[in-house]
Computed example of a mutant assay.
Amino acid sequence: MGELLALLSALCFGITHFVNGLVSRRHDGLTVALHAQLGGTVLGLILALSLNGGSATLADHGWGALSGVGTGVGVAFLYRAMSKGAMSVVVPVSDVGAVALPVLVGVCFLGERPGVPAWLGIAAVLPALWLVSQSSPEPDGTHQRGTVSAGVPSALVASVGFGVQFLAMAQVDKDSGLWPVVLSRVVSVAVIAVVLGTYGASWRLRGWPWAATVAAGALGTLAIVLYLEATRQQLMAIATVLSALYPAIPVLLALVVLKERLNRGQVAGLVCAALAVGLIALR
């Protein structure tokens, strides 16, 4: 069950980033990130008020707040990257830290010991991400190297943020309820607001882009709730790797909806990602 929850989390994350990536093509990515997290905060409040409050400790709230810092940094710089670079490149790049950091901490400091199949699956993830991140050629056969490189630095910063997000949220106690998640959303909004002010980006987003962004942000909160529940039923390293397979979703949606083309490396990467899921599920 933990594996299914983690994969559903990946699906929600992938759709969230695809929708907000589309909006970021016409509006500043930092502005999109702010409104997305506001939408996610609203959903978090509704869920926390509707469900059992739990018994979160000060430490749980601290981990939630730290996760919010990671979320704020991750989302702000990912959507900034998607404002500049190709979605099929910057989203997988932003996933590197999200996979590596929690897994390394889980193995090195938390005593987690995945089985051999899971290790093989984990080892297959990074090659999958690298292959998926290879840009598709333009109709004339050339590659937009300048466009790709413009978004990669921000995507790498985002990857560290997402790593902190996953790692910190996994430390929240299973009986803490959803208030640490709400706190993480609030903190992420504050972090994004600071980054937005630093870069002097616009605070306004209106019409259908606003509605789409807010809805996608709410889906992102659902994704982190699913991930939190997955970590309570599965090793953090396993849940994190499965949830962090979300880059495959924007690539597939870009292929179907935007009619983008996949090169051979990206196809191989998606196959490798599917293989990784199967091996990790076997544990």
Rank of each mutant, 00 (worst) to 15 (best):
L252H: 00
P114L: 12
L110M: 15
L252T: 12
M236H: 10
S176F: 11
A128F: 07
V225G: 10
L226Y: 10
L34D: 04
L131E: 07
L51M: 15
T142N: 08
S67W: 13
V32D: 00
A59C: 07
P250S: 13
G106M: 11
G217N: 09
A248M: 04
S94N: 08
I15W: 00
T31F: 15
A170W: 03
K84L: 11
G278Q: 11
A248H: 01
A168V: 03
L279T: 05
L110H: 14
V182F: 04
L8T: 12
D95C: 08
L22W: 12
R25I: 06
V195G: 06
A6R: 09
Y79N: 04
L120N: 05
P247L: 10
V89F: 02
V214P: 00
A59Y: 11
I238V: 15
F77C: 05
V19F: 01
Q234W: 13
V271W: 06
V172A: 10
A230R: 09
T231I: 09
L131H: 12
V186A: 10
N263L: 14
A237Y: 13
V32A: 01
T41A: 14
G39Y: 15
P209N: 03
L51K: 08
A239D: 10
D175W: 08
D60M: 06
L255Q: 07
K84S: 07
S67T: 05
W63L: 02
S9A: 15
T221Q: 04
V257L: 05
A98D: 14
D140C: 05
V32F: 06
P247M: 11
S50F: 14
V42Y: 00
K84C: 03
S133R: 08
V148C: 08
N52T: 06
V157A: 05
A190M: 11
L7I: 15
V105L: 10
A36K: 07
K174Q: 09
F18N: 00
L110D: 10
C12L: 15
G39L: 06
H143T: 10
N52K: 15
Q171I: 01
T221F: 00
C12F: 15
S154K: 01
L242N: 07
A268E: 07
A76N: 11
A274Y: 04
V181K: 13
A190I: 09
W179P: 03
T41P: 04
M236K: 14
A244Y: 14
A128H: 07
P180R: 05
L205Q: 10
G146L: 12
L178I: 13
G14E: 12
L22T: 11
L129A: 05
V187K: 03
L255W: 01
L262T: 02
A193C: 05
P127I: 14
L34W: 15
A216D: 00
G217Q: 14
A98W: 14
V103W: 03
L205A: 05
G115W: 14
G97K: 06
P117Y: 01
G53D: 12
Q266A: 08
T142Q: 12
V160M: 08
S67K: 06
A201T: 07
V187F: 12
V125M: 09
E229D: 10
P137E: 10
P139D: 04
G44W: 00
